[in-house]
Design a protein around this nucleic acid. Structure first.
Length: 548
RNA sequence: GGCCCCGUGGUCAAGCGGUUAAGACAUCGCCCUUUCACGGCGGAGACAUGGGUUCGAUUCCCGUCGGGGUCACCA
C-alpha cells in the first residue's frame, strides 16, 4: 500500500493533471502582457472596493494588451445569494468594466480557460488534490470540527500558536494503511495539505504594491478539500490562477498574510507563482477610528448607492483612479478632454495604506465630469435617473426640447456651469424653469437689498412695460436694465456706485436682483438673460403679475 | 496576544540625506462678475514621539505610541 493507492481510493475517478495542463495551454500574448482577474463571491452585493479592484485589473490588462477575466468564487454555498452572478456582471457593465473572459450571466460564460465558476471545477481540484496525495504532499484528515476546536483550546490555554501544524496535526502521520482502513470503514474526512514549511524560517516576498515583505514560512496543514468536496479559497486560487494563466493577482490586502501559504502551494504543486498586488482597502472614519467601508453600516459601500444618488459612473471611476494613483489628478488637469482610459496607471505608485473615502471630493470630481457633458447628454442621463428615482423630475423632463433649452443655459461654452454634482441635484436646479414647480414652490421670494414691495412692483412693472423685448441681444438687454436702474435712481454701473455709495440707494445689480428674484423666487440663478429667453415674455409677465 | 504592514496639514497625497516640505479637495480672504456657480490671486494649516547614525535627518536604524490587516472545513 502506498500514496497512490490512497489517492485512488479517495479520488478514484480523477483525471491525471497532464490532461488539464494540455487542455489549458499557456496563453499566447505579447511580452509583458498582464493577465488578471476579478474573482468575487456571489454574495449579492458589489462593494465599492470590488469595483476598485476590477477597475484597476481591467486597466492593467488594457495597458499591456493582456486579458482580464471574471471568475466566480462560489465554493461556500452557505453564503450564496440568488442571482449573485448576474448582479456582479451587470454592475461591472454599468461601469464599463467588461471582462474578456468569464461569466456573462448566471450560468453562461465565454473564454477558453473555463469553467469560470469554481463550483463547476470540482473535478479539476480533485485531480490536483489527488496529485498531491500521490506525492505524499496532502493527506486525509479524520479530525472532526470538534476535535480541531479542542486542539485550538488546548493551544490557547498553553499560550502557544494555534493551528493545525507539526505535532498538533494529528492526522498528518497516519499511515497509508490506517488511512485506507478508516476510509473504507466509512469514516468522514477532509483533505489537508502537508506543509513542508517551518515557522522559524523566514521567506522574502516582493509585492507589487506593498514592496518587500518578510514572513515566517507557512507550516499550517490547511484544508484544501472541504467536507462538501469543494476546495478552500487557497487551493482553488493556486489551481485556477495557474490553469488560467494569471500573471498578476490583484486582490484586497486582507490576503497579504496568506502569501506564504499560497507561495508554498504553488511550489508544491509545481506551478510558477503569479505576481501579487495587494490593494489597500477604502476606509471610513468611524468615531475617530478607521475601518473598512462596511456593507452593513455604510450605504456608500455598495456600488448601487452611486446609481441611486445619480453620481455618474465616470465620476466614480475617476475618483477611484484618483485614490489609486494621485498623479491622475495632475494628468487630468493637463488633459481635460482625454478619456480616462488614456491615463497610465502604475501599480507601484499605489498607496500601501487605506484611504479614507471622501464624498466631498467625489462630488467635486463628479461636478467637473458633468460640466463637460453636453446638454443632450445631461438630459439623457438625468431623465434616465429620474425615471427610476424621481417621478416628478421625470414628468418635467418629458418635454425634451424644452428641457434641453433649460440645460443649455450657460453650457457648451468654454466655461460651462459647474452646479450639478449628481442627478439628484437636477430638480432643485431647474425647477423654477417649470411653471408647475414654480407655482408649487412656497418659499418666500429671496429679496436682498430692495425689500419694499411697492418699489419692487414698480421696478418690475416699468421693466416689463418699458424695457423688456425678447428680440434684444444680451448687450442691449443689459443696457436696458442699466437704463431702468438709472430711471429708478440707482447707479447704472457698480463701479460708479462703489466710488460714491452715498449718492445712490444701490446699483444696477440690486435692480437685476429684483428682476431675478421676482422671476425665480431665488437670489442665485444662472444667467438671467438666458433664463428670460427660455421662459419667453408671456410667462415672464405672468410671473411678474403674481409676485408677493 | 503572535505575526505582518503603515504613520507628511481636516482629507487624498508628492517627497526617497541638504527643499522657502509640491499639488488637489475642504476652509478663509480678495479679485472678476448684474446674483450664484466657474475662473484668478492670496492666507491659515503637516513630517506621531523619544533615542541614535550623520557635518546634516521628513527621508536610514531602534524603542514607544497610534492605526490597519491576519491568525476557519469564509472568501
Amino acid at each position: 500500500m502506498n500514496y497512490t493507492d490512497l489517492a485512488n481510493i479517495i479520488f478514484p475517478n480523477a483525471k491525471e493533471i497532464s490532461y488539464y495542463e494540455e487542455k489549458y495551454p499557456k496563453r499566447n500574448l505579447k511580452e509583458g502582457a498582464i493577465v488578471t482577474r476579478f474573482a468575487p463571491s456571489p454574495t449579492g452585493f458589489v462593494h465599492i472596493g470590488g469595483l476598485y479592484q476590477g477597475l484597476i485589473a481591467r486597466k492593467l490588462a488594457d495597458q499591456t494588451e493582456g486579458v482580464f477575466f471574471l471568475r466566480i468564487e462560489d465554493t461556500d454555498q452557505k453564503r450564496e445569494v440568488e442571482n449573485g452572478i448576474s448582479g456582479i456582471v451587470e454592475a461591472l457593465k454599468e461601469f464599463d468594466i467588461e471582462p474578456d473572459e468569464g461569466m456573462i450571466n448566471e450560468s453562461e460564460e465565454k473564454g477558453n480557460y473555463g469553467p469560470y465558476k469554481q463550483s463547476e471545477r470540482k473535478e479539476i481540484y480533485e485531480a490536483y488534490a489527488k496529485y498531491l496525495i500521490m506525492q505524499g504532499k496532502a493527506y486525509p484528515c479524520f479530525c472532526t470540527p470538534e476535535e480541531v476546536e479542542e486542539i485550538r483550546t488546548k493551544q490557547e490555554a498553553a499560550q502557544i500558536r494555534p493551528g493545525y501544524y507539526g505535532v498538533w496535526a494529528k492526522c498528518r502521520n497516519i499511515t497509508v494503511e490506517e488511512a485506507i482502513k478508516r476510509i473504507q470503514a466509512g469514516e468522514k474526512y477532509i483533505v489537508r495539505f502537508k506543509s513542508p514549511g517551518r515557522e522559524d524560517r523566514k521567506i522574502k516576498h516582493h509585492d507589487v504594491i506593498k514592496g518587500n515583505v518578510d514572513f515566517p514560512e507557512n507550516d499550517q496543514d490547511i484544508v484544501i478539500i472541504k467536507a462538501d468536496g469543494l476546495p478552500t479559497y487557497h487551493f482553488a486560487h493556486a489551481v485556477d490562477d495557474h490553469l488560467m494563466g494569471t500573471t498578476h493577482v490583484i486582490r484586497g490586502d486582507e490576503w497579504l498574510s496568506s502569501v506564504p501559504l499560497h507561495l508554498q502551494l504553488f511550489q508544491e504543486l509545481g506551478f510558477k507563482p503569479p505576481k501579487y498586488a495587494h490593494i489597500a482597502p477604502i476606509m471610513k472614519n468611524d468615531e475617530g477610528n478607521k475601518r473598512k467601508l462596511s456593507k452593513r453600516k455604510d450605504p456608500e459601500a455598495a456600488v448601487s448607492y452611486y446609481a441611486q444618488e445619480g453620481i455618474p459612473e465616470r465620476a466614480v471611476k475617476e475618483y477611484l483612479l484618483n485614490i489609486a494613483n494621485s498623479s491622475f489628478e495632475n494628468w487630468r488637469r493637463a488633459n481635460t478632454d482625454k478619456p480616462m482610459e488614456e491615463f497610465e496607471l502604475q501599480l507601484s505608485k499605489m498607496s500601501v495604506s487605506g484611504a479614507l473615502f471622501d464624498m466631498v471630493k467625489l462630488l467635486d470630481v463628479s461636478k467637473t465630469v458633468i460640466s463637460k457633458m453636453t446638454a443632450e447628454e445631461i438630459y439623457e442621463k438625468s431623465f434616465e435617473w429620474a425615471k427610476k428615482y424621481d417621478e416628478e423630475l421625470a414628468t418635467l423632463l418629458k418635454d425634451k426640447s424644452y428641457a434641453i433649452k433649460v440645460f443649455s443655459i450657460e453650457r457648451g461654452n468654454k466655461k460651462p456651469r459647474k452646479d450639478i454634482s449628481k442627478w439628484a441635484d437636477v430638480k432643485e436646479n431647474i425647477s423654477y424653469m417649470y411653471d408647475v414647480e414654480y407655482e408649487k414652490d412656497t418659499r418666500p421670494y429671496e429679496y436682498q437689498l430692495i425689500q419694499d414691495k411697492e418699489t419692487i412692483h414698480k421696478i418690475v412693472k416699468t421693466y416689463l412695460e418699458k424695457y423688456y423685448d425678447d428680440k434684444d441681444d444680451k448687450q442691449t438687454w443689459f443696457d436696458k436694465i442699466k437704463e431702468l436702474a438709472g430711471e429708478m435712481g440707482y447707479a447704472k454701473e457698480v463701479k460708479e456706485y462703489k466710488a460714491n455709495p452715498e449718492n445712490y440707494p444701490g446699483h444696477v445689480g440690486d435692480i437685476s436682483t429684483v428682476l431675478r428674484v421676482s422671476l425665480t423666487k431665488r437670489a442665485n440663478t444662472p444667467d438671467l438673460y438666458e433664463i428670460m429667453q427660455v421662459l419667453g415674455k408671456d410667462r415672464i409677465a405672468k410671473r411678474y403679475e403674481k409676485i408677493r
